[in-house]
Amino acid sequence: MKTISLKVNGKPYTVEVEEDMRLLDLLRDKLGFTGVKEGCAEGECGACSVIMDGNLVTSCLVMAFQADGKEIITIEGLQSEDGTLHPIQQAFLDEGAVQCGFCTPAMVLAAKALLDKNPNPTDEQIKEGISGNLCRCTGYAKIVSAVKKAAEYLNQGGK
């Protein structure tokens, strides 16, 4: 066991982790952030993506001990305390970009990671931004429109 400290969605945690634990397991099994999904365990599907120190990463490829000192954002960190949806979440709803929903939390985070750095992406840039996230329900067209709509909402100062 090893003790590490990290921030998740702004809140500090100090936790004991097993040596061979992944960040994905830490977030889901220990800390209860089950919005982080496991779809493949090898970096291919993107469902486990979280934002770590501002960058989108697949949490199935990060060892828990490597996250010592990091700031993590999961889908649970996007909605305001009063229940207001983040503009990206709202855009996904409004554009019908959600089907089975298993890819959705990570897609929303991929959109966030992109829009945080590039508030006015082109379609091509959006496609690249979500290229590490598979949607097997294949709602890509709607997801791309949702990210565009999210950019609009954000540029108008939220919805």
Binding site: R28, F33, T34, G35, V36, K37, E38, T74, I75, E76, L78, Q79, L85, Q89, F92, L93, D94, G96, V98, G101, F102, T104, P105, V108
Partner: peptide, 19 residues
């Protein structure tokens, strides 16, 4: 129309069996 299960899914609160 906005799908009924949409809200739970965009917030990560939807429960899949592994959750």
């Amino acid at each position: 129309v906005i799908r009924v299960d949409g809200l739970a899914k965009v917030t990560g609160k939807a429960i899949y069996p592994q959750d």
